[in-house]
């Protein structure tokens, strides 16, 4: 009995597929799911998610959110998703890569120039932006 994987964001149902396994970025570290796994509810951070469909590995970046596994059905609730597979031409991939690199450097600089507890929220924000940029790069195979 394979897994049913559903990834949803507030703006769309990203995918709904039958997969053999799923690996995702949990708050406490990466976790992998195979059929007949114990029920799980996990908080997720930005990062690289992978799933195996008919022996082929697919990679995508997902934002912070939650994952639930129950009865071999995986639900991923997340704010945003980046699918490099949807970029068909090399130019598009290049553009996405540069955008991610830019975002990473910007967020990195912002986090480094953090000026104390008064701007704790901003620090948090730049860390999130940094993680999201890294996730996209990882999905692109960097």
């Amino acid at each position: 009995m394979p897994l049913t994987l559903e990834i949803v964001t507030p703006t769309r149902l990203v995918l709904r597929k039958t997969v053999e396994s799923f690996t995702g970025p949990g708050k406490l570290g990466e976790f992998g799911l195979l059929p007949a796994h114990r029920p799980l509810l996990a908080a997720m951070r930005s990062g690289l998610a992978r799933y195996l469909e008919e022996g082929k590995e697919h990679r995508l970046a997902i934002g912070p959110g939650f994952a639930q596994l129950d009865n071999d059905r995986v639900i991923i609730l997340t704010d945003e998703v980046f699918e490099p597979e949807k970029l068909t031409s090399p130019e598009e991939r290049d553009e996405a890569r540069h955008a991610a690199l830019d975002d990473r450097d910007k967020a990195d600089a912002a986090a480094r120039s953090w000026s104390g507890p008064t701007s704790a929220d901003e620090f948090e924000e730049s860390v999130l932006a940094l993680e999201w940029a890294r996730a996209r790069l990882a999905a692109l195979g960097e």
């Binding site: 949990g26 708050k27 406490l28 976790f31 114990r38 029920p39 799980l40 509810l41 996990a42 908080a43 939650f66 129950d70 009865n71």
Partner: peptide, 17 residues
């Protein structure tokens, strides 16, 4: 009614979720 065998794993913790 759809409670299946095996307790849920909560990560990082039930309270955090």
């Amino acid at each position: 009614d759809d409670r299946q065998a095996g307790e849920f794993i909560f990560e990082p913790s039930k309270q955090a979720l």
